[in-house]
């Protein structure tokens, strides 16, 4: 069965259960690792690359949310190298689509914005892509704004694993990737959608929002999803 192991995180010895990820061990021991795609209650995707950590003896950086903690591992969660990688990852997210906080319903409650502030990303070093993306307002209660999506796939996972509807998935590839409902239909026409709103609750940015909110008004509750996951026994 699962046995207890010891790992060193930022020099501190931490006890962990075999199979736990570095991210989980760190959180349990009061170390916060930044992340935009990881979420309590659903599986990890390792897509945002913000939880990258250094592991002694391994040259490349590893995502904490998908790397299992191993006996005797020595993990570093903050360093100049990590900060510069995390800032770069954030900059590329800002460059890729149209993140304009001043007109966003999630302004002030946005995980992307908060992370950029905490990591000191005040500007980007690359030209903006400024893609022309659509906004799907076909759903009676919710809105999907591709301009603000960072493709973290939290909505995909929560809809599949907690709600069981699997309305969302990522269509396309590379720079052309988009969150799609069913066969890339308007959200409002989705046969599978139960209008439960879980995807809206977990969105880290202003990509999935409830209708009827003005700038800065949209708040969310991720904790409710974690509780639901526990009740369903779906916690991975």
């Amino acid at each position: 069965m699962s046995s207890q192991i010891t790992v060193r995180i930022d020099g501190v010895l931490c006890t962990a259960t075999e199979g736990e990820t570095i991210f989980e061990v760190a959180e349990a021991n009061g170390k916060h690792i930044p992340s935009l795609c990881h979420m309590e209650g659903v599986s990890s995707a390792g897509s945002c690359r913000l939880c990258l950590v250094e592991v002694a003896g391994i040259d490349r950086l590893l995502p904490a949310c998908t790397t299992p903690a191993q006996r005797g591992m020595a993990v570093t969660t903050t360093s100049d190298r990590l900060s510069s990688h995390r800032r770069l990852a954030l900059e590329l997210m800002f460059v890729e689509r149209n993140h304009i906080c001043a007109v966003c319903v999630s302004n002030g409650h946005c995980e992307l914005q908060a992370l950029a502030q905490s990591l000191g990303v005040t500007h980007v070093r690359y030209p903006y892509n400024s893609p022309r993306l659509s906004v799907d307002v076909s759903h009676p209660r919710f809105v999907l704004d591709h301009n603000r999506c960072i493709l973290c796939s939290r909505c995909v996972r929560v809809c599949d694993e907690i709600e069981g509807a699997h309305v969302w998935d990522i269509g396309g590839r590379g720079i052309g990737s988009r969150v799609v409902a069913d066969l890339d239909r308007p959200w409002g026409e989705s046969q599978a959608c139960t209008a439960c709103g879980k995807c809206v609750q977990v969105c880290p940015t202003g990509a999935l929002v409830e209708k009827g909110y003005a700038v800065e008004e949209m708040t969310r509750s991720k904790a409710a999803i974690a509780r639901l996951a526990v009740k369903k026994g779906a916690t991975p």
Binding site: V167, W168, D169, I170, G172, R173, V180, D182, L183
Partner: peptide, 22 residues
């Protein structure tokens, strides 16, 4: 065809669309 395969194999439509466009 995609709708038929989805129904027949109990695969979500969006998963199929994701695979087909990837």
């Amino acid at each position: 065809v995609l709708e038929y395969i989805a129904a027949k194999t109990a695969t979500p439509l969006s998963r199929i669309y994701g695979v087909v466009t990837f």
